[in-house]
Design a protein around this nucleic acid. Sequence first.
DNA 1: TAAGCTTGGGGGACCGCTTTAATATAACCA
DNA 2: TGGTTATATTAAAGCGGTCCCCCAAGCTTA
Lengths: 339, 339
Amino acid sequence: MAQKVTIRDLAEAAGVSVTTVSQILNGKGDRFSNDTRDRVLKLQEKLGYVPDYNARNLIMGSTQTIGVLVPNLANPFFSMFIKGIQQVAQSHHFVPIIFDANQNQKLQSMYLEELIKRAANGLIIASATLDANDIDRILTRNGIPYLLFDQNDAQIGDRVWVDDYKGGQMAANYLLSQGHRRISLLVGQDITHNIQQRISGFRAGMAKYHLTLADEMVVQTSMTKLGGYQATATVLAKKPTAVFCINDEMAIGLYRGVQEQGIKIPDDLSIMGYDDIDLADFVTPKLTTIHQPAFEMGQVATELLIERLNNPRLTHQDKQLPLELITRDSVKLIQSGIH
Amino acid sequence: MAQKVTIRDLAEAAGVSVTTVSQILNGKGDRFSNDTRDRVLKLQEKLGYVPDYNARNLIMGSTQTIGVLVPNLANPFFSMFIKGIQQVAQSHHFVPIIFDANQNQKLQSMYLEELIKRAANGLIIASATLDANDIDRILTRNGIPYLLFDQNDAQIGDRVWVDDYKGGQMAANYLLSQGHRRISLLVGQDITHNIQQRISGFRAGMAKYHLTLADEMVVQTSMTKLGGYQATATVLAKKPTAVFCINDEMAIGLYRGVQEQGIKIPDDLSIMGYDDIDLADFVTPKLTTIHQPAFEMGQVATELLIERLNNPRLTHQDKQLPLELITRDSVKLIQSGIH
DNA sequence: TAAGCTTGGGGGACCGCTTTAATATAACCA
DNA sequence: TGGTTATATTAAAGCGGTCCCCCAAGCTTA
C-alpha cells in the first residue's frame, strides 16, 4: 500500500500551508481565494486524501459514535430495534456500534468498558442483567449520556418506553373477553422492570373481572423459542384454556411443543404473545399479540440521545410510544358462564 | 462531569513521569519497581483512568476494529453469522462494527466509506449488490484486507464458503428420492454467485435423474418471508408437488400463503428450504432444509481475517465448511413410478 | 500621509498518548 | 579504585490533525 497521504503532503503539493488546507476542507475556507480553494480540493481528490480519523477525533473530542447494547441480536424485536437506530443515527452522521451481550453479565460489563474506551458519544442500553445504578455510576463518572431501554424503573438517563402495564392489561382484557378464565402466564427467568409491569398489568386486568392469577399458573423459562418449547409440559400440566407468553419468541416455542402433543391451537389451547415480531404473522395459526413498535422505538431512542448530545443540559427526556392489540388466529372465543 | 483524567494527571498523582505510567499500563513495566507499579495501578483504579482511545490509536496506527457489512440483520442467518463474528473478534480483542446495508446499493457504498474513514483494520463483506471488483479497487487502494462472503465468484480477497453447488444437489437428490418430479424453484431477485451455484447444483441433481428443471418452474421474488408469501399464487399455478426455496425465510413465507389456501404441507405440497435458521425447527410442519453453519462461518471468517491482519503477505486463504441435509417434516414421500 | 480596513494566508501550540534514547544511581568485579 | 552492568526513571520527539492569533500588502479615508 502506498504510504498514507497526510494533510502535510497535500499542503505541500498545493503549495500552501497546513492551516489553509485544514480550513478549506472543513468548510471554513471563505477567506481564501477561489483559486487556492479549487487547487486544494482538486489535489485532495487526486491524492485520495482522507483525514485521519483518530487524529481528527483526538482534537475534536468526538467520535460520532453511539454504542448499543442488546441482549440478543437473534431476537427479531431487537433486529428491528437496531434497524431503527441505524436509520436515524446515519441521518445524523453517527455510527452505531452494536454489541450482542448474549444475556451474559460479564460480557455486558466488558462491552460497556469497550464502548467507554472508544469514547462513544452516547449509549443505548437494553440490558436485562446489568443493574441500572451500576450503569449510571460508571457512565456518569465518564460523562457519557445514555438511554436505558427495557428497564425503566430507575429514574435516570432518558427514556423511551411503551406502557407495559397497559399492555399487560390489554392482553388480559382480550383473553377474558374471549371467555378465558383459566390462564397461564409464561415468563422469563430474570424479570426486568418492564416485564414486571406487563405482569402487573395482566394481573390488574384479571382483577377487574374479579379473578386472580394464581402463582402456580405462572411458569418461568428462558425468553427464547427454545425456552418456550421446553416449558410445554409444565404449562400443559396447569390445564389452562389460554396462555399469555411474555414475548412472541416463547409463544412460538410453545407452539411447537403443544403441536407435538397433538394439541390444536386455538381449538384446544389459546396462545397469546407480546412484541409482534414479523414472524407472528407467519406462524400457523397466526399469533395474536401485542404490538410493540420496535423499529420506531429504535428511531426515537436515537433521536432522544442525539438530542441530548447536542444539548447536554436538557431535562429528563421521556417519550412514550403506543401499544396495539393485534388479534389474529391463535385465541379462540370460548363459552363462558360469566358476563 | 469531572474533567477527563489524562495520563498526566495520573502521573502527577503517582509522583512519576508520564512515560512510567504508560509503560506500566501497557504491560511493559517489568523494569520498574514493584512499588512504583503498584502505586500506579492503584491510582489508575482510583482515578478511573481510561487511556484516550483516539490518542492511542493515532499513535498505534490500529483501531482494533473489523467492519462488517450484511444485507439484512433481520434474517436469522445473518444474526447467527454476526454472533460468530462477535465471538471470535472479541477473543482477539477486536471490535466489529456492523452495518445493515438493507440491500441498498448506495447505503452500502456509504458504509464502506465510513468504515474506511474509521480506519477499520479489516472488513467482512456480505453484499449482494456491490460489485466485487469495485470493492476490491477501493479497498486495496486503501490497503484494507477484506473477506468476501456470499459472493464467491471473484478470486480476490479471502474466502470462507460452503459448497453451494453440492448443497443444491443435495436438495434435488432428496426431493427426487422422495418421489417428487414436478418441482418448482423459488429464488431471489438478484442472483448472487453462491445462489447461482445452488441453482446449478439443483439442476445437475435433477439431470442425474434425466430430468430437467424447466425455466417456467422457477419463480423469482424477494428473499424475505414476505417475498415468499407473495409468490404463493405464482408458485401454486405451476402445480408442483414440491418446491425448493432458496432460503428458509422464503419457505416460511410460502408456508403461510399455502396454508391460507387450505393446502396441507406436506400432504398436498412439499416444501424444502435452505439455511436451517433456528426457526426452521419451530414452524409447523418442521422445515426440511439444508443446514448452513452460519455461526461457524462467522467465526471462521473472522479468524481468517485476523490471521491476515497479523500476516499480510499470506497467500489467498480459503476455507470450506460442510453442508448438511436436515430432514424434518415438510417433505412427503410420494408414489413414483420411476426408480 | 498616517491610521485603519480588507483580503489572503501562515506559524505554531496543542490534543493525549507511545516510544526511543538518555540519565542517574547502585551494585558488582577484578 | 575504576570500569562495567543492572536497575529505575524520565525528557522529549512525534502521531496527524485543528484553530487561535499574527502578518503582509494593498486600499481607503480624513
